[in-house]
Each structure stands twice: as structure tokens, then as C-alpha cells.
Amino acid sequence: MSVEPILKGRNLVKRYGKVTALDHCDFDLLPGEILAVIGDNGAGKSSLIKAVSGAVIPDEGEVFLEGRKVNFRSPIEARAAGIETVYQTLAMSPALSITDNMFMGREIRKPGFRGKYLRQLDKPAMEKFARDKLSELGLMTIQNINQAVETLSGGQRQGVAVARAAAFGSKVIILDEPTAALGVKESRRVLELILDVKSRGIPIILISHNMPHVFEVADRIHVHRLGRRLCVIDPKEHSMSDAVAFMTGAKEPPAEAVAA
């Protein structure tokens, strides 16, 4: 491989009691790509993603971000390093506004006395930033950025969560089942949003069960099986049936894909 992966996992092992969720697993995310991670339930997809995003600490193995070894002990540390994760649950507070949610945990304070001693938040600045980010991603026609998140539809919430990740995720964005809870039309919008984020040069890890979605947007597909990377395939060279067959063990993966 000539290009240095932006995010790289080597020999990752994670055990929960007697269960081995990750079995000497490798992982590579190249700059600017959308890498889909697919695998059957229980194959260890979530453990893999958690291991590279700091949500779990692997028992063995190493994670490298831009070639440098990193040891994230929490998702907050990973976030500080530029890795944003959009969880399936979205991690949003329904009663709070879009702005509050976008800035949760990294609020902007007013400059000068009011920010320093009264610790006053700079609401106009945060609202402007939130509005700009949402419009940048085509989540347009926002009239009320202070609307509570619970008043948004599922797709709109996903949109806000992706916008939050895109706004702050400088290096990697991880999306966990972004379309799982959405209707057909909303899924479509979220996929467009994902391509939009990619076009801005930020690499994306997409975890999904939805093969049509994966094949539509992914540049490469990491097939996870039995706690390790079985192969990485090119969606243009393989069919969805192939992918499912590799994933479930019905078919042997091609030799060159395993080496990749």
C-alpha cells in the first residue's frame, strides 16, 4: 500500500470474559475515502469501531492516527484528536436546542470579562456557526436554530448529528448505522450528506447493514468476520451477493482482497 492510512489499527485484540470480540484484527482507513465496515451480527464491528474511537481500550494491538501511535482512553480524547463519532443513538439531548446540542461539551464563551468571570456563553456566535454549518451541508431553510431537537424528524436529527461531526471532525468521521432508523426518503438525504462530507476531503467510516447503501457510497468495503478483517473489497468489482457470502462465510474471499 503506497498511501499512508490516516487511521490504522494493527493486531487489535479485545476480549470480554471468554468471548473474543476482536481477534488480532487489522484496520486501515485511507485519506479521503469512505470505508464501509460490514459484518454479521456479533462479528465484532462495533468492538472494532469502539477500539479505534476510544470507546473501548483494546487488550492488545496498536492504533495509529496519521502514522503516530495513539492511546485513546475515552471518546473525548479521540474527539480532541479529530475523530468524531456519530452514534446510532445520536447522543443528543432532545429537550435542548440544535445549537446547544452542536456545541455540547465544547461551548464558546464570550470574550473578555463576561466570558472569563461570568462564564457567559457566546450564544450569537454559536448560533451563527451552527447555522453556517447546517447550510454548508445543504441542511438549508433553517429558520429556528433554537428549536428543540425533539421537534425534528429522525432524518433531521441525523442531519444535525452528522453536521456536528462534520463541523468538528477534522480528521475522521465515524458513522454508526446512520440510516438504520430512517425511512427511504430520509435515508437518501443522509447518503447525499455523507457524499457531501466526503467531497470536503474528510474520510468516513460507515458501519451499516444496508448493502444497497454501502455499495452506493463506499469506496472500499471492509468485511468483518469472526473478530477480524476477512478482506477488503472494491464495490465496483464485487456484487452485493458476493459481499454477503464473504460476510457469512458461504464463499471464500479472493486472495488479492485478503492481502490488501
Binding site: 471518546p75 473525548i76 452514534y87 443513538t89 447522543a91 439531548s93 465544547r106
Partner: peptide, 10 residues
């Protein structure tokens, strides 16, 4: 509102 969400949000 939701402690897990708050934790994940930082």
C-alpha cells in the same frame, strides 16, 4: 435529559 447522550457528547 439523557446522561448517556451527554457523556458521549463530551
Amino acid at each position: 435529559d439523557d446522561p448517556e447522550a451527554a457523556q458521549l457528547a463530551g
